[in-house]
Design a protein around this nucleic acid. Structure first.
Lengths: 184, 184
DNA sequence: CGCAGATGAGACATCCGTGTCTCATCTGAT
DNA sequence: ATCAGATGAGACACGGATGTCTCATCTGCG
C-alpha cells in the first residue's frame, strides 16, 4: 500500500535528516519494521534515499501550492509559506544535508523547479518594492532555505520549540536581528 | 611539519564540507598527496575528521577574537565577526554538516564555548537595545551559524560571489529581507 | 480449523572503504 | 655520485554495511 511506503519514508526522514549516514537497521527500526520488510518495499538504500528526496520535494511543492506564493502581497505570501513549510522543516533539513541527491537528474530537476518558484517570489517582492534589492533574489532564496533547514534541525534537537519556530523564522528572515531599522 | 598537516586539513575541509562522506582517496587527491601519505600524517579517518573539526573550531575562535565581539556596539561587533568569519565560512559549513563530531567530548566542549561566546554577544546586544528581544539569543546564534554555513556552501558552489558574501550575510541577518521596516 | 499472504529473525555471500604492508621511485643533502 | 628519508603506487586482509536468502511465526479470511 502507498500508505505504508509513505509512513516508512517519513520515519526515514526523521532519522536521515539528523544523520545522513544512518544504517538501514536504524531506519527500519525507526519505521517499526524489520530490515527485511524495508528491503521488500525499497530495492536498496539508494532507492530509499531517492524516494525520501522525492517525497520531501513533493511536500515542499505542496507547501508552495498551499501558500499560494504567486498571489497577493509578497510579505504575506512569504509568511504563508513559512507557516506551510515549517511543519515539514525536517524534510528541508534532510534535503540540505543530503548533497549526494544532486546526482539524480530527476530529483535535481524537481529541486530546480521549486527553487525557481521561491526565487520568483523574491523577485516579485523586489519589483513591488517589498523586499530589498541590494540582496539578490538567489541569495534570499538560498538563505531562506538555509534557515528553514536550521529550524528543522533545531526543532528536532529540542533547541527550538515547535511552537516558536514559524514566528522565529519569519521574524528573523523578514525583519532581521536589529531592533531598530538602522542600516548604516 | 605542521604546515603540511594544516594544508592537508584545509584541503580536507574543501571536500568534506561539500560531501561529509567523501572517501579518503578523494581527500588525499584534493590535498595533492597519496592515500599512503595521508595515512602517515593521520592515523585514520576518525582522527582526520577530529583534526579538521578542531582546526575549524580553532579558526572560528580566532575569528571571534579578532572581531573582539565583547567590545563596543554589538551591531558593529557582529559586522566585524561577519568579516572575520566569512573567509572561513567553509569551515562552518563543515561543522554544520558533520554531526558525528558531536560524539567527541573534547570537540563538543570547544564548540560549546564558541557558541556561548556568540550567544553572549546577542544577549548583550539585546540588553543594550540593539538586537530584538522577541527572538531568543539562542535562536539568533543558531540562525547566524546556519547562514554562515549557507554562505560557505553557496560560495563553494559558485552560487554566491566571495566578494558579496560578507555584505549579503550581514545585511540579511541584521536587516532582514524586508525593504521597509514594517513588522506587522 | 486450515490456508494464503505478510512479516520478523537470522544466516550467508558480497561489496566497498579502510588500515597495513611492501617496494619502486623521487628528492635533497653530503 | 651516494645515501637517507619521504612519497606514490599497488597489493592484501579486515570489518562493516548491504543485498539476498530461508524459515518460523503471525495475521486475516474463508
Amino acid at each position: 500500500m502507498a500508505t505504508d511506503r509513505d509512513s516508512v519514508l517519513e520515519a526515514a526522514v526523521g532519522v536521515l535528516s539528523r544523520r545522513p549516514t544512518a544504517h538501514l537497521d536504524e531506519i527500519a527500526r525507526a519505521a517499526g519494521i524489520s530490515r527485511a520488510t524495508l528491503h521488500r518495499i525499497f530495492p536498496g538504500r539508494e532507492a530509499l534515499i531517492r524516494e525520501v528526496g522525492a517525497l520531501s520535494l513533493r511536500k515542499f511543492a505542496t507547501a508552495l501550492d498551499t501558500a499560494a506564493i504567486d498571489t497577493g502581497d509578497p510579505q504575506a505570501a512569504l509568511r504563508r509559506l513559512v507557516d506551510a513549510v515549517v511543519p515539514d522543516a525536517a524534510l528541508c533539513a534532510f534535503l540540505a544535508g543530503e548533497n549526494q541527491l544532486f546526482d539524480d537528474p530527476e530529483i535535481n530537476e524537481l529541486w530546480e523547479i521549486q527553487d525557481e518558484r521561491v526565487r520568483s517570489l523574491f523577485l516579485r517582492g523586489q519589483q513591488e518594492g517589498v523586499f530589498r534589492i541590494e540582496l539578490s533574489a538567489g541569495w534570499l532564496s538560498e538563505a531562506f532555505f538555509d534557515l528553514v533547514a536550521g529550524v528543522g534541525w533545531a526543532v528536532q534537537d529540542g533547541r527550538l520549540a515547535p511552537r516558536d519556530s514559524a514566528y522565529s523564522l519569519a521574524e528573523l528572515f523578514l525583519g532581521g536581528a536589529l531592533r531598530s531599522p538602522d542600516r548604516s
